[in-house]
Design a protein around this nucleic acid. Structure first.
Lengths: 160, 160
DNA sequence: CGTGAAATTAATACTAC
DNA sequence: GTAGTATTAATTTCACG
């Protein structure tokens, strides 16, 4: 989600901290400090500043959804009839709050939205689409693809 | 990425721990313990077990890519000519390692892959596609959509 | 499994450079 | 901005219920 941020001046120390945090967000402050060669107290201030500057959004744990009873994942492409800001924002809010939704993208091009969802079964996925997506006002078309596999890239790391 | 996991028996305590970690992966162990009503030492063991059982994959920090000089994000749909396992795996490995790639999905349906990428500019995005995607052997078609906005859902939380 | 106590290690304010 | 130091708090191990 590109927002209001300018390129922001990050020195090599900040980059090092981010590199460590991107790989393991639970790394102790202590260990981060050692990894980048500064004192722990300094490191603490840096991390706090990175959060306050909005460069660090948060820290999330990747949980195996299959282990939680959601072994299926799908991408649902959604097209709206109209494209007023109201329609778009309304659907975005709606979709982000639905159970099983991992992420929602608002896109340019033929499809307006892409939803990544997790489901317990093919039936549950179908029900999800019928109950929460196609039933939403203004939806013109949906198209669902199963996600066979997912791989995490290293976008953040490659930019550091 | 649905893999080999069975629904896995998670009691209410495990679920509580995961709920806390999903929201803030840097929550201290003893705060998690207090939140779910167990001793810190017990909590530590639970968290370790959740990692060993593969239920927790890792902890990642969300970094603002715009602040890192990558203000643009796009979804690139990719279609292969053939669909042998070799072709698919080869592209998956290739794509996941490319700079700026946030995630790679292997899908059913018309498009074989979906790449979420971050770029510094429209030119950089075009270069990325020409240099790394369309130049890859076996690529039949690509289609790029800009990501205007992204919203994180609460899939994990809704399953806990 | 769960715990509580003990030892080690880390987080956090300060202070000062 | 950076670090040293003192205090408070958290992590970790382990013997035991």
């Amino acid at each position: 989600m590109p927002n209001e941020m300018r390129p922001a001046e990050l020195d090599e120390t900040d980059r090092g901290i981010l590199r460590v945090l991107a790989r393991d967000a639970r790394t102790p402050n202590n260990a981060i400090a050692a990894a980048v060669g500064i004192a722990p107290s300094t490191c603490l201030g840096r991390i706090r500043a990175l959060r306050e500057r909005g460069i660090v959004h948060g820290h999330h744990t990747d949980i195996d959804l299959a282990a939680l009873g959601l072994p299926l994942q799908a991408m649902i492409a959604v097209r709206l009839g109209a494209h007023t800001r109201g329609q778009v924002d309304s659907f975005l809010d709606h979709a982000a709050g639905l159970p099983g939704v991992i992420s929602v993208f608002n896109l340019s091009g033929g499809n307006d939205f892409l939803l990544r969802v997790a489901a317990s079964s093919a039936d549950a996925l179908r029900d999800f689409i019928l109950d929460h997506i196609t039933s939403h006002p203004g939806i013109q078309h949906t198209e669902t693809s199963l996600i066979f596999t997912h791989r995490r890239g290293a976008a953040a790391l490659s930019a550091l």
